[in-house]
């Protein structure tokens, strides 16, 4: 009896942690059509979410809901999420594993892309290998098409929930060079 109680109380202590990702898995079922069941999306215009930083996912969902970021598909998806839903979804995708298959663009000037990424000091915020931290997203393993769209959206102010941090960087980079940067990053894992 004591053993059962001890084991059960261990379970209860952990249960808050357990519930988040597990609940997130259920809530993510409606997201699977675009982002894949495990956050590995199948179409390059839908970003991979597997292994993304939880805080970034949470903040984007919040921004979609509040209108600080806008997308014809994501805005309605985020409209009715509660704060707990957002935490749970963020936890779920953050704990998933990227399957190594993203849309890479290899027929670009990758060395130019790397040179420009180094010059723009991207890894100071995105960390080495573009692995991300907190509200600064992981970009390694992301689809080329999605990366270049974000860079151009920041440049042309179609996306403004970056507090100027991204737009100040991309504002003075030619579109063709942005394509090389996005191509370079798409080859990173």
């Amino acid at each position: 009896m004591k053993l059962i109680l001890a084991l059960l109380s261990m379970f209860l202590l952990q249960s808050t942690a357990q519930a988040d990702a597990e609940a997130g898995k259920q809530k993510a079922e409606v997201c699977a059509a675009c982002h894949g069941l495990d956050g590995n999306s199948i179409a390059p215009n839908f970003p991979n979410l597997a292994g993304q930083t939880a805080r970034y996912i949470y903040l984007q969902l919040k921004d979609f809901q509040k209108g600080k970021r806008s997308d014809p598909m994501m805005s309605p998806m985020a409209a009715n999420l509660t704060k707990q839903d957002m935490f749970d979804l963020a936890d779920w995708y953050a704990s998933q594993k990227f399957n190594g298959q993203n849309s890479k663009k290899t027929d670009a000037n990758l060395s130019n892309g790397k040179k420009l990424a180094d010059a723009a000091l991207c890894t100071m915020c995105h960390l080495g290998g573009f692995s991300g931290q907190n509200e600064v997203p992981r970009v390694a393993g992301q689809h080329y098409e999605y990366i270049i769209k974000q860079l151009k959206d920041f440049k042309y102010k179609n996306r403004t929930n970056d507090f100027g941090n991204m737009s100040a960087v991309v504002k003075t980079i030619e579109d063709k060079d942005l394509e090389d940067i996005a191509a370079y990053v798409s080859t990173l894992h």
Partner: peptide
């Protein structure tokens, strides 16, 4: 039995706890 159910629950919890620290964990 109730003991083996508890063991199964504990087993799954241990696996979850081993994964990376996530956002909303206490």
């Amino acid at each position: 039995t109730s003991i083996s159910k508890a063991l199964v629950l504990v087993g799954s919890v241990a696996l979850a706890a081993a994964s990376a620290t996530t956002f909303a964990e206490e």
